[in-house]
Nucleic acid binder design. Sequence first.
DNA 1: AGGTTCGGACGATCAATGTT
DNA 2: ACATTGATCGTCCGAACCTA
Length: 307
Amino acid sequence: MADANQDNEEQGSASPSDTQSTMTMHPVTYSGMPMHMYPFPPGLVQPQPARTKRRQVKNACTNCQKACKKCDDARPCLRCVKYGIAEECIDSQRKERQKGIKRGPYKKRDGKDRASSGNVEQQIDLGVQPGISIPAAIAATAAGPQMPYMTPVGYPGFFGQYSALPAAKPGEAPTAYPYPTQYYITPIPMPPPQGTGQDGEAAQYAGFYPAITFAPYAPQPYATPYMMQAPRPIGDGQQFQQLPQMAMAQPLQYAAFPQHYPKPPSRDVPHEPLPQMMDPTGRREMRMDPYGSRMGESVAGAHGKTQ
DNA sequence: AGGTTCGGACGATCAATGTT
DNA sequence: ACATTGATCGTCCGAACCTA
């Protein structure tokens, strides 16, 4: 039922046919990631289905617990901040575990190697998820001639659910930016070769250094991948106009707290306009959602469930 | 459109039990 | 002592419903 969808969405385990038909599959997902988000170019996708576990916080806050919604480790959590109930964001109390429960006979071991599965876990924790391998990404980005005319330089990389956000006190900047930790895998353009290679071989020009950098996910409009421009034909098409090959991303500049991490509007109060953020180049203003979480969630439901 | 409710799948934990 | 199992408890997804 619902959880089958959930698995596919969250764990990136859609069948290959799904990927082909919609071009919307993403090999690495994070919880709450929009389903239409960022198709990877085929060279960066491994056919192996990636199954990442749903990650849970150790202790949800009382509000998230009541609403059965996703919490995080920060206090106040993002959800409580979003709904203006940060002051009510406290850890829920866990029951004492029952003791003295009798157990039936154990099954024999089935030969599964728990240590190896533990390694997978560790990979996930490090952000090296099975859906995309760094060597594969390097190979793909180093394949200069295979780059299409307009190639997104940044591709979304790995995602945590959120940065572990320590609670920011009023007047104090949060130590981490309150966005889902999203990164772009960004091949680094290399300058054209000069001279020839060793032993008279033609110098190879990959177009990109075979290296991956991880640029922080940028809110719109920075999230638009910077594009490589192919040489533009001039005249009869035999000559090409040289174009600047890359518009390098400027370092992001964030306004100081609380300007970019304000207390969100209460449900009972008319929304204030979100803070404006200056483009580092000064060319335009950015409007940003300071919460970085999905909309459409409740503040605190009244479950009636006994938990 | 956005908020709320809630069934239920799934993850985390850890005491009980098995194995070396 | 350490490894393994599996019951228990908790998290939270996502559909359905509600409300402004």
